[in-house]
Simulated assay, not measured.
Amino acid sequence: MSGTLERPVVASRNRYHLAVDAFLFAAVIFLIGIGLQAIAAWVTSGGDPGAAMMPAWVEGLGMLAMLVGVVGGALLAWLVHGRALRGRDLLGAVVGVAAGGVALVVAFFALFSLWRFVPAIVPRDQVGPVDGAIVLAVAVLAFLAKPVIAAIRDLWRDRLHPGRDWLRLGALALVLGAVVVSAVIGGEAAELGAFAVPIAAAAACAVTGMDLLAARRVSAG
């Protein structure tokens, strides 16, 4: 963050792109962690993960993937955008995660309460909440759309931030590839994309809190 004030529109756009990058980076880190957990489960079970209970350390890999996804995604996006990391920025991350977590919980329960009144596209008791997954996917794609288009446009014309653009598009490709593969595998793996969303959203909230606190610090002095 520079010592000069940004125009509100520019600052808002930069913050949006920062949040999207944190979202994508966190999703990639989380999916890699879950992939490593799946490999560890396969190895420790002799090739049949469903035959026995996983060791505690293998179970712990899932929790570690969540934590590293949130922290790593936010910090990586912060550094990729050229921001200097200060101790006070971490306070903004905590506040961002807390505020975003409350907002997400409220939104989830509101959606869950209203969803039962929405006519089912497919029999939910047979195939699960497929229509809910479609709504979630559309919402995520809508959130990612503008920064992704901006990255493509920048690579095509201006090339102001090619490294950042390639990281954003590469992360998106990895996430989409993982979601498609998990959907093809089916079973519990098909829900992997949905599990990644709250982790990625937490990272986006964290980095947004960091940026808001940094902007307030600059404007104050």
Rank of each mutant, 00 (worst) to 15 (best):
H161S: 10
K146T: 11
L155Y: 05
S182C: 09
A142Q: 04
A200Y: 05
F143K: 12
V140M: 14
D165E: 06
A189V: 03
V184P: 04
R157H: 15
I152D: 02
I199R: 05
V180W: 13
A171Y: 03
D165H: 01
P162V: 05
A145D: 05
T208A: 11
L169V: 12
L160R: 14
P147E: 03
A196W: 02
A173R: 00
A142W: 02
L174W: 13
R164H: 13
A201F: 10
V207Y: 05
V197H: 00
E191I: 09
G177I: 10
R159Q: 15
A133K: 06
A190R: 07
G128T: 04
V180A: 14
L141I: 02
L141K: 01
R157C: 03
I149Q: 10
I149P: 06
F195T: 02
D154T: 08
L160A: 15
A173L: 10
P129F: 15
A133Y: 04
A151D: 09
V175F: 03
L169H: 02
D131G: 06
R157D: 11
A173V: 11
I134Y: 15
A189Q: 08
A203T: 01
L172A: 00
A142C: 10
W156Q: 11
R164V: 03
D158V: 06
V207C: 05
A189D: 06
L176D: 00
V179R: 02
V148P: 01
W156C: 08
F143A: 15
C205W: 09
R164F: 08
V127A: 05
A196H: 01
R168C: 03
L169C: 07
R159K: 15
W156D: 10
P147N: 04
F195P: 00
G187F: 02
A139E: 04
R157N: 12
P129A: 12
G170I: 10
V184T: 05
I199K: 11
P147D: 06
R164M: 11
V181R: 15
L136M: 12
L160S: 13
A178T: 12
P147Y: 01
A200H: 02
I149Y: 09
R159T: 06
G163P: 07
A150W: 10
A142G: 09
E188A: 11
V130R: 00
A200E: 06
E188Y: 09
V175I: 15
A203Q: 01
L136K: 03
A200F: 06
V140E: 04
A194R: 07
R153V: 14
